[in-house]
Amino acid sequence: MGYKLPTGCRATLTFFYTSDATGLDVTVCLANSKGVPDLSVIDVDTYIHDLPDVTNDWRVMTDEEIAEYLRKEKGEQEKALTVEATD
Protein backbone atom coordinates (compact mmCIF):
# COMPACT_ATOMS: atom_id res chain seq x y z
CA MET A 1 0.00 0.00 0.00
CA GLY A 2 2.84 2.45 0.65
CA TYR A 3 2.61 5.56 2.77
CA LYS A 4 2.92 9.34 2.65
CA LEU A 5 6.08 10.90 4.06
CA PRO A 6 5.99 13.70 6.63
CA THR A 7 6.36 17.31 5.47
CA GLY A 8 9.99 18.10 4.68
CA CYS A 9 10.84 14.54 3.63
CA ARG A 10 11.36 13.10 0.17
CA ALA A 11 12.30 9.59 -0.93
CA THR A 12 14.37 8.40 -3.86
CA LEU A 13 14.34 4.82 -5.12
CA THR A 14 17.31 3.78 -7.22
CA PHE A 15 17.31 0.73 -9.48
CA PHE A 16 20.70 -0.64 -10.59
CA TYR A 17 21.27 -2.43 -13.91
CA THR A 18 24.32 -3.77 -15.70
CA SER A 19 25.26 -5.32 -19.04
CA ASP A 20 27.77 -8.16 -18.99
CA ALA A 21 28.43 -7.83 -22.72
CA THR A 22 29.31 -4.13 -22.63
CA GLY A 23 30.30 -3.53 -19.00
CA LEU A 24 27.87 -0.60 -18.90
CA ASP A 25 26.02 0.24 -15.72
CA VAL A 26 22.78 2.22 -15.55
CA THR A 27 20.74 3.55 -12.66
CA VAL A 28 17.10 4.54 -12.82
CA CYS A 29 15.96 6.88 -10.06
CA LEU A 30 12.45 7.71 -9.01
CA ALA A 31 13.41 10.87 -7.18
CA ASN A 32 11.85 13.34 -4.76
CA SER A 33 8.72 11.36 -4.07
CA LYS A 34 6.44 12.60 -1.28
CA GLY A 35 5.56 9.01 -0.48
CA VAL A 36 6.97 5.51 -0.45
CA PRO A 37 5.18 3.00 -2.65
CA ASP A 38 4.40 -0.53 -1.57
CA LEU A 39 7.85 -2.00 -2.16
CA SER A 40 6.54 -5.56 -2.24
CA VAL A 41 4.88 -4.97 -5.61
CA ILE A 42 7.83 -3.33 -7.40
CA ASP A 43 9.29 -5.51 -10.14
CA VAL A 44 12.66 -4.03 -11.11
CA ASP A 45 12.75 -6.15 -14.26
CA THR A 46 9.88 -4.09 -15.70
CA TYR A 47 12.20 -1.08 -16.16
CA ILE A 48 14.66 -3.03 -18.33
CA HIS A 49 12.63 -2.31 -21.48
CA ASP A 50 13.18 1.44 -20.88
CA LEU A 51 16.98 1.17 -20.79
CA PRO A 52 19.18 2.32 -23.70
CA ASP A 53 19.15 -0.13 -26.60
CA VAL A 54 22.96 -0.24 -26.86
CA THR A 55 22.78 -3.83 -25.65
CA ASN A 56 20.17 -6.51 -25.18
CA ASP A 57 21.54 -8.19 -22.05
CA TRP A 58 20.57 -5.73 -19.30
CA ARG A 59 19.99 -7.33 -15.93
CA VAL A 60 19.50 -6.23 -12.34
CA MET A 61 22.79 -5.87 -10.42
CA THR A 62 23.54 -8.12 -7.47
CA ASP A 63 24.07 -6.62 -4.00
CA GLU A 64 27.83 -7.04 -4.42
CA GLU A 65 27.78 -5.27 -7.79
CA ILE A 66 25.77 -2.40 -6.32
CA ALA A 67 28.26 -2.01 -3.47
CA GLU A 68 31.15 -1.89 -5.97
CA TYR A 69 29.26 0.57 -8.19
CA LEU A 70 28.65 2.87 -5.22
CA ARG A 71 32.32 2.68 -4.16
CA LYS A 72 33.43 3.67 -7.66
CA GLU A 73 30.84 6.46 -7.81
CA LYS A 74 32.01 7.87 -4.47
CA GLY A 75 35.65 7.73 -5.61
CA GLU A 76 34.84 9.57 -8.84
CA GLN A 77 32.93 12.27 -6.95
CA GLU A 78 35.82 12.75 -4.52
CA LYS A 79 38.27 12.93 -7.43
CA ALA A 80 36.13 15.58 -9.16
CA LEU A 81 35.96 17.64 -5.98
CA THR A 82 39.74 17.44 -5.61
CA VAL A 83 40.27 18.61 -9.20
CA GLU A 84 37.85 21.51 -8.70
CA ALA A 85 39.58 22.56 -5.50
CA THR A 86 43.01 22.66 -7.16
CA ASP A 87 41.89 24.56 -10.30
Rank of each mutant, 00 (worst) to 15 (best):
L13K: 02
D38W: 04
V36Y: 00
V44I: 06
A31D: 11
T86L: 11
L30M: 15
E84H: 02
H49L: 05
R71P: 05
G23M: 06
A21C: 05
K79C: 14
L13N: 03
Y3P: 06
A85T: 04
P6L: 14
V83Y: 14
D50G: 07
E73M: 15
L13S: 02
L39C: 03
G75W: 15
L30E: 13
V28W: 08
V60H: 12
H49V: 11
T46H: 09
Y69C: 06
Y3Q: 09
T46C: 03
N32H: 12
E64V: 14
A80D: 13
V60N: 13
L51A: 05
R71Y: 05
L24V: 04
N32R: 04
R59L: 07
T27V: 13
D87W: 10
S19H: 07
N32D: 06
D53Y: 08
M61F: 05
C9N: 10
K72H: 14
K79F: 10
L81F: 12
K72Y: 13
V41Q: 01
K74F: 08
A80C: 05
K74C: 07
L13H: 06
L30G: 03
S33A: 07
V54F: 10
V54Q: 10
M1E: 02
T55L: 05
M1C: 01
D25R: 09
K4M: 04
V41P: 01
D53H: 11
T55N: 12
V54G: 11
L24T: 06
R10G: 02
V28L: 13
L24K: 11
T14C: 09
T46P: 04
T62A: 15
Y47M: 12
T55R: 05
T14E: 04
L30F: 04
H49C: 15
T18K: 11
N56I: 03
D38N: 11
E65K: 00
L30Q: 15
L70P: 05
F15L: 12
E76R: 13
D38C: 05
V26R: 13
K34C: 00
K79E: 09
F16T: 05
Y69F: 15
Y17K: 09
V41T: 01
R59Q: 13
Y47N: 08
M1R: 04
N56G: 02
T22R: 08
A11D: 00
D43V: 01
T7K: 15
T22H: 07
I42R: 00
F16G: 14
C29M: 14
R59H: 11
V83N: 09
E68C: 11
M61I: 09
I48V: 15
G35I: 00
S33D: 00
Y3F: 03
L70D: 09
D38P: 03
T18E: 10
T18D: 09
L51F: 08
D57T: 07
E65I: 12
I42C: 01
I48N: 08
G2T: 03
H49F: 09
E65H: 02
V26N: 13
A11M: 05
N32M: 03
K4W: 12
